[in-house]
Amino acid sequence: MPVRTLPMRKLKAAALAAALSLGFLAAPAAQAAEGHISIPDTRFSFDGVFGTFDRGELQRGFQVYKEVCAACHSLRLLSYRNLRDIGLSEAEVAAIAASYQIQDGPNDNGEMFERPGRASDRFRKPFANDAAARAANNGALPPDLSVITKARVGGADYIHALLTGYQDPPPAGVTVMEGMHYNKYFPGHQIGMAPPINSDGQLQYADGTRATVDQMARDVSTFLTWAAEPELEQRRAMGVRVILFLVILGGLTYAVKRKVWADVH
């Protein structure tokens, strides 16, 4: 991946001065200001404090990953068994796993061999190693997508914007280098990845949803957010309970405090 360059930025001292009053906000504010490209906000099912993943979106997103992204991008931290979380049955997961040939071994003759995948196997990587991935991709390394939404400013919004942000021909006056593509939201605007999602109806969704470019980008962004933060729903549900508990405990403690201090005030 090309190094992200830091372009000149407008002075937003006044707007950011508010962050100073809460000093520790300065760090994220700085990061947010880092990408001068403003990423459009996309509405997702998991937005907000109580948001959860839409299971249909997740399953369609997995289909997009499987049929489009997986040709170049690995998802090495995930195992097929994790797909149980997106609402697939044990049998469906086993069938998906078995449709991949996974390297195993060595066998008794000391040779590696391939066998059908099992639920416990990690997702099959498209390339044997990084060098092979570069060789097949014009020198660029397609990044692993396991934690991609946590690893990019803007998260899922950025993924959605990137997938829908290609522009061909590029805006007037911009020369795009050989083998590169113009993207509105990619830092530096020149990206090695050809538009992966390029036309409506590029794939047939199993659930019959119309596969528009926006729909596919949205679904795969949701899927990748789940891949990066599979604990998200459990975390938020637990958070609500913990905070409710603490608020009650806080009220009780404060009442005790008032009682204890009543005779000295």
């Binding site: 930025r9 009053s21 000093g23 520790f24 300065a26 700085a30």
Partner: peptide, 12 residues
């Protein structure tokens, strides 16, 4: 001033 430094430290 400490917060100003903190802010500047996060800027390029």
């Amino acid at each position: 001033n400490f917060f100003v430094l903190m802010y500047c430290g996060g800027m390029p």
